[in-house]
Simulated scan of single mutants.
Amino acid sequence: MKPNATSLSIAIRRELVFHDRQTVADISEATGHSFPTVKKHLERMRTAGEVNEQGLTPSTGGRPATRYVFNPSAANGLCAYIEQDVIAYRRIDAIGTTLEKGRMAIRHGNHLQTLFDLLASQLASHSIQAITIGVAAAVADGEIIYAPDYPTLSDVALTTLLESTFDVPVVVENDMNAAVYGYGRSVPTYADETIVYVYLGKNGPGSGILLNGRLLRGKTNFTGEISFLPFYAHHTFYDRIRNHQRGTPLTDQACDALARLVTTFTATLNPHTIVFSDIDVTEEDIRRVRKRSERYIAATHLPDLTRGLWEEHYFQGLITFCVETLLETI
């Protein structure tokens, strides 16, 4: 955090960007700080170019209040996710609007070097104040602790490495945590809902969990590694779905494996919703999975089963993490 990024400044930024509170009175009530204190901070932020005035509120009999909005040009961020054969990226402004997007093919099977090349290219061309990276791997405090399909990333303290190289704040996050976080931001939900997001993946399945509105990471940040679930006498969940071909109906074997997964989450977390990637399943597949799940657990306990826009929710999670970092560090 920079010296001028006081806790109140950060709170004001968050109210403006995430909660659409635009007047001194509204922000004062939300933050618990006095009207004069909030007013003083807003004026200081306006002078610094962080905040713009945007007219007055409609009159309700008294003096109309000045409306404030956060300046999108106050900072830029870069969000990228790493897949087996490509890195997809978006450059965003300070409120999360996409300014540029693209993809870079993995070069010579080296994911780490390709990531370095992408970041170096973007930072040479643009002023970027925060970076978020998503990866299909287990991540603990910015370190890749389990990435069998990404040997150049395995056991790499990626946040530390990138921050020391590029001198920009970096957040590294598991792909499923980003996706479920993005879904929670994109779809109207109650603050205390429990949501599970399931992706069968190119390199094996994973899940992300919002427990009562908060990301569930677990003791060693290994939450969601559903490949290992021993649903059958001699086979894991991954063994039963690994041959599923995207774009084709679920086999009976894959349908049963997903039904057992739904049942397990229902019995342990009792979530409101389980989201399946639109890349992996169709609406008919979901109907079959629900029907099969009813063999294992009473229908009254089952959550809503739905399809999610995988890439958009993934990016929305990365963008939200990036904006949160920008608001704390600019």
Rank of each mutant, 00 (worst) to 15 (best):
R46S: 13
T57L: 04
R103D: 13
Q84H: 10
P36D: 08
P58S: 07
K40C: 04
L99M: 10
G77I: 01
R91W: 02
E83Y: 06
A48N: 14
R63P: 04
R67F: 00
T66W: 00
T98N: 08
G61Y: 12
Q54R: 12
E100F: 04
E100G: 00
F70C: 02
V69Q: 06
S73Y: 04
V38P: 01
D93C: 03
E83D: 14
L42Y: 13
M104T: 12
A65Q: 14
P36Y: 00
E53D: 05
G62Q: 13
P64Y: 09
S34C: 00
T37S: 13
K39E: 09
K39Y: 12
A80F: 07
R67Q: 13
M45A: 11
Q84S: 08
R44S: 11
C79P: 07
E43G: 10
G96R: 02
M104H: 14
A88T: 12
Q84L: 06
Q84T: 08
C79D: 09
F35K: 11
A65S: 15
I82T: 06
F70W: 15
I92V: 13
P58A: 07
A48V: 07
G61V: 15
A65P: 05
T57K: 08
E53G: 06
F35C: 00
A65N: 13
P64Q: 10
Y81T: 09
T97L: 01
A94L: 01
E43Q: 15
Y68F: 14
T66D: 07
P72R: 02
C79F: 07
S59H: 11
H41Q: 15
T47L: 07
S59R: 13
F70S: 01
R91G: 01
A94P: 02
I92C: 02
D93R: 01
R103W: 08
R90C: 01
L78P: 03
K39R: 15
Q54L: 00
L78Q: 03
E83P: 00
R67E: 04
A48S: 08
T47E: 14
Y81K: 06
F35P: 00
S59G: 15
M104W: 04
N52R: 10
I92A: 03
